[in-house]
Nucleic acid binder design. Structure first.
Length: 416
RNA sequence: CGGGGUGUAGUGCAACGGUAGCACGAGUCCUUUGGGAGGAUUUAAUUCCAGUUCGAGUCUGGACACCCCGACCA
């Protein structure tokens, strides 16, 4: 991608209204644009990151045997009334004939009756379906940029079981998959499994909380066993429910995912039962599992940055290499610089390395460097008259400090 | 939703009830070119609706929007 052709440009200054540091960098870099409070446009650069996150997540979902589909965002009122959730923080609207809808906030109300249409016998179980879809929540107060929006992208997985053991086992598998997802997305080092209220179906549900000063949740990390509990659990249990530990460290954190055992709450509401081998009716057990993709995007920006900009993990960076050419006043040298970057791009493309090519004319070196730091692409490769003299390019990792020279011949095989 | 605050150009700020201005940004041209360079030039704003007044960015009322604290967050 030629940076001169990129739809967006970076911004030196943005409105002081946005206070979340990560979101400010995403806005300045042109990854996202704010449309209204809690509502963001995902710009081409941001979409590239989001698509990588999506790929990581959907690959894991596939590993879990879940099948992807897309459910509607426009959900009839009667579905919400069936489960008694019409009064939650839904965005509500009316159709042409006066019929009422609630926009998707989470979708047990669609997933459950849907599953009922295709699963009848105990032989049809277990199974799981998931989607990555825009969700809407009529938050009374949107805040912290992408961390708490009214419209956001979420992966929601629903699993269906007829034995508690099977349900429990699957739940554990998803739990592991979630840690793997967060690790791949580059935020594992500080993400804690956190016990939270489980409602009436299991003692606890689990949140995945990434430590960050920008988080709005407070979690308490057990010094003894390393599991965390949220505020609600802390007030119910004086000791760690997991190990009985009594010492906790308090941390601010961002909830990047959550998983629930729903029991029969939704299947019962929709009259969803399975026929057993002896012809009797069996209750259907459900679990749901969510990850906010846009929130994850915001969390990475928030937790992986410095004063100059974002530091994308390799796995979800919009590009792997930021190839930057610095113009020279000497025209023949300029032609050689252009030729060198053309060859480099060819070599990198052969290895399927994604390159953002800063070919912008008339931009000072300083401006290009600042933009590069802001965009946070993991590898910066500079071609200039200076590097040309040594038949090499200059490589600097965004996350590191040192720069190294690599010969033209070496770049094709370089392991970024 | 309760409480508080703020609405002037893309951003940050000015303007006694009397000509809406400054800086930065952005665009164009020229000069520059290893950490946001210089010059010239252009661009662009009083959130909306009423009211008071000879006259409203400024005063009054209402709406809307945005921000902050709290509550909420399946």
């Amino acid at each position: 991608m030629r940076q001169s052709q990129l739809f967006t440009k970076t911004q030196k200054e943005i409105s002081a209204d946005e206070t979340n540091a990560g979101t400010r960098l995403l806005l300045r870099g042109g990854f996202i644009d704010k449309t209204a409070a809690g509502v963001y446009t995902i710009l081409p650069l941001g979409l590239r990151v989001l698509q990588k996150i999506e790929k990581i997540i959907s690959a894991k979902m596939d590993d879990l045997g879940a099948q992807r589909l897309v459910m509607p965002a426009l959900v009839p009122k009667k579905n919400w009334e069936t489960t008694g959730r019409w009064n939650y923080d839904l965005f509500k609207l009316k159709g042409a004939g006066g019929e009422e809808y609630g926009l998707a906030a989470t979708l047990e109300e669609v997933a459950t009756p849907l599953a009922k249409k295709f699963a009848f016998s105990y032989k049809d179980f277990p199974f799981a379906i998931y989607q990555i879809q825009t969700k809407f929540r009529n938050e009374l107060r949107a805040k912290s940029g992408l961390l708490r929006g009214r419209e956001f992208l979420m992966k929601d997985l629903y699993s269906f079981h007829i034995s508690q053991k099977d349900c429990d086992e699957y739940y554990e598998r998803v739990k592991e998959a979630y840690f793997s997802i967060f690790k791949q997305a580059g935020i594992v080092q500080d993400t804690y499994l956190t016990l939270s209220s489980g409602g009436s179906f299991s003692k606890f549900s689990h949140e995945f909380q990434t430590a960050s000063g920008a988080g709005e949740d407070l979690i308490y990390l057990c010094d003894n066993c390393g599991i965390a509990i949220n505020r609600e659990i802390k007030s119910e249990y004086p000791k760690c429910p997991e190990c009985g530990g009594e010492k906790f460290s308090e941390k601010k954190a961002i909830e990047v995912g959550n998983i629930f055992k729903l029991g029969t709450k939704f299947s019962a509401a929709f009259g969803f039962e399975a026929t057993g081998g002896d012809g009797c009716k069996l209750p259907v057990l459900m679990c749901c599992y969510g990850i906010g993709l846009t929130r994850l995007l915001g969390t990475v920006a928030e937790t992986s940055r410095d004063d100059a900009g974002i530091i994308w993990p390799e796995t979800i960076a919009p590009f792997s290499v930021h190839l930057m050419e610095l113009e020279s006043k000497d025209e023949p040298a300029n032609r050689r610089i252009k030729e060198a970057s053309r060859r480099i791009r060819q070599d990198l493309q052969k290895n399927q390395i994604e390159v953002l090519y800063d070919d912008r004319a008339g931009k000072s070196a300083g401006e290009k460097f600042k933009d590069s730091d802001l965009l946070g692409i993991p590898n910066r490769v500079v071609v200039s008259a200076k590097t040309l003299e040594k038949n090499s390019v200059e490589l600097k990792k965004r996350a590191g400090l040192e720069t190294v020279l690599i010969g033209f011949d070496g770049i094709a095989d370089y392991k970024f």
